[in-house]
């Protein structure tokens, strides 16, 4: 078991390294003139500089190093917790992140909890109902949740709940009330996916032979759904939660922009606008780290929940 854990952790770290490397390659090696890009991001016009000043700038940004050298240098800094300096603001990227990360984590945490609860609850109810017309309508609903752009939903919710009804603020980070609309908006696409997958899973499990055995015992539908169906149908959701982290991060960028919230997502949007390369690299690295960590936890948790994996079959 210990070897399994160690190998999974190593795998996770390698994936993270891979993601970091790809991002580095795109940001530092793809641009035709990295120097002028960086100078523009810092607010300096490259044309106004003399050759000596350009050389000095090149050295300052570390662009006179070899490719691999630069990469290792940045990686070394990263491992020490130094994400570099923001080109546009001049402040330490680590500080920028540290200020904003808690806000985004709170938003994402709420959204994930909401989406799992709503998704599972929705699927459970839709399967439990017996009245056909309502059942059919509910089954179609998640597809709608998946089709609407998340930023559009945000605008719609602002229009209804903020401007028309005045229940919640439409922007800012003040207090719990400001968290409600953004969290709900962010949770909708994931909730829709969980609901869809779970409904299908419920259907599959209801058709299994062991459910007939349960019925023959005299159990009611509600008892069967709670004791037998839920546990077996919900297992795939765990893996799905891990995979949805990517969508949650992307969604956070859009939602924080729509609701004008302080957070890593809006930091990303601003940095891309200003072509602030170190910040973009840092944000993507954090996102990949979150993805890899969550999926690692899911992988390690799975054997605990599915007895078929944990215990090898002992047949006498």
């Amino acid at each position: 078991m210990k070897t399994y854990i160690i190998s999974r952790i190593t795998q996770a770290l390698l994936v993270l390294l891979g993601a970091y490397t790809i991002t580095y390659v795109i940001l530092y090696l793809l641009p035709s003139d990295a120097l002028s890009l960086m100078l523009t991001a810092s607010g300096v016009d490259a044309d106004t500089l003399s050759a000596a000043q350009l050389a000095e700038a090149r050295h300052h940004y570390g662009l006179d190093r070899g490719v691999v050298d630069q990469y290792l240098h940045l990686l070394g800094n990263l491992l020490r917790g130094d994400f570099g300096t923001s080109l546009s603001t001049g402040s330490s990227v680590t500080t920028l992140l540290a200020d904003r990360l808690p806000q985004t984590l709170m938003l994402a945490g709420c959204a994930i909890t909401l989406s799992v609860t709503a998704g599972v609850g929705f699927a459970y109810t839709a399967t439990w109902l017996r009245w056909r017309p309502l059942r059919l309508a509910l089954r179609r609903l998640p597809a709608l949740g998946l089709s609407v752009p998340v930023f559009w939903t945000g605008l719609l919710l602002i229009q209804i709940f903020s401007f028309t009804l005045g229940w919640f603020p439409s922007m800012g980070n003040k207090g719990f009330a400001s968290l409600v609309l953004p969290a709900v908006t962010l949770s909708i696409p994931s909730a829709a996916i969980y609901a869809q997958v779970l409904m299908r899973s419920f259907d599959d499990v209801w058709g299994e032979s062991y459910i007939a055995t349960a019925r023959a015992k005299g159990l009611s539908r509600a008892q069967i759904q709670w004791r037998h169906v839920l546990r077996n149908a919900a297992l795939p959701i765990l893996t799905l939660i891990g995979l949805q982290i990517g969508n949650t991060v992307s969604g956070a960028v859009l939602v924080e922009t729509v609701f004008t919230r302080v957070g890593v997502g809006r930091l990303a949007q601003e940095s891309v606008l200003r072509q602030d390369i170190p910040v973009v690299l840092a944000v993507v690295t954090i996102s990949a780290a979150a993805f890899v960590t969550i999926n690692l936890i899911v992988d390690l948790l799975y054997p605990l929940l599915d007895p078929r994996i944990a215990r090898a079959a002992k047949v006498t």
Partner: peptide, 24 residues
């Protein structure tokens, strides 16, 4: 029917490999 199942009529299902809940 539920009052009868299990108490008056019991069922031994067909395929034992798939007739038990695998996670219980």
């Amino acid at each position: 029917w539920r009052t009868l199942r299990g108490r008056v009529v019991g069922l031994v299902p067909q395929d034992p490999m798939v007739s038990l809940n695998p996670t219980m």
